[in-house]
Design a protein around this nucleic acid. Structure first.
Lengths: 128, 128
DNA sequence: ATGTAATATGACGTTAACGTCACGTTTGCA
DNA sequence: TGCAAACGTGACGTTAACGTCATATTACAT
């Protein structure tokens, strides 16, 4: 299916129409092509793009931050963008990501040790 | 310093007074003890707790989610909490965390490869 | 004692990321 | 041709997590 309207798009991407229109309004999603009637038409790429956005959101990125990087996934990166600026943004994101990874790893090991403690407690006190 | 008022607390924890009061209002932070006058008094533990909250927030946890786990860090875990339930919550958080770690790792490598590409481009095109 | 800084409380304001409603046009099927 | 279902657009509503006054009381340095 490669020429769908918003109904199919949202169903396949798992978002609401409001979300799609909101993303279009802030420029995060290109407004689908419009026929003479005013309806928007979308493609498979739009689906993929919405899914990617959702994925990045789950990492804690704001829509604004996603703006910075989403084009790398879906647009012609050999274009005429100010390469150095994009590179700077990317490096910043990489450094942010590394910090997050470290904090997340720490959190994970904290969780694990708490879990271990609880499990030992339960073992020691079962069948009392 | 182990009996401070809100001014010192916020300075040391790097948050605002409004934040402290907000956290108290939703039960995320225990209201400091109050003297006869009405002022709240806090301890080193409050500082640590605020820092921990901040750390968890950076991982993308909502204050509500933090509520679930914060007690494990700062309250008597040998108390009378329903152990099995807490364990369930912890395991869920662990699994969520693992998923996040994986997604974040994927994102990191995506970023890295984009960065590499940009760098190669710049190298090849410098001094043209 | 007194003026200034710190604190407590209440209420209204703000931003992000949509939700929901109202209303008019378009489409697709009987 | 008729009509319910789908779509477009505008506008107001909502939640989280605080920010920002305004006002009243308390603490502390001189």
């Amino acid at each position: 299916m490669n020429r769908m309207r918003i109904g199919d798009l949202t169903e396949r991407a798992g978002v609401t129409q409001r979300t799609v229109r909101y993303y279009e309004s802030i420029g995060l999603l290109p407004s689908g092509e419009r026929e003479g009637n005013g309806h928007h038409y979308y493609t498979e790429e739009t689906v993929a793009r919405l899914r990617k956005i959702d994925q990045l959101k789950k990492l804690g990125l704001s829509l604004e931050e996603i703006q910075d990087v989403i084009q790398l996934y879906f647009t012609d990166t050999s274009g005429v963008l100010p390469k150095r600026k994009v590179l700077g943004i990317l490096r910043q994101h990489l450094s942010d990501t590394d910090q997050k990874l470290e904090a997340l790893g720490q959190f994970r090991s904290d969780l694990q040790s708490h879990i271990d403690r609880f499990e030992r407690w339960l073992e020691d006190n079962e069948g009392e």
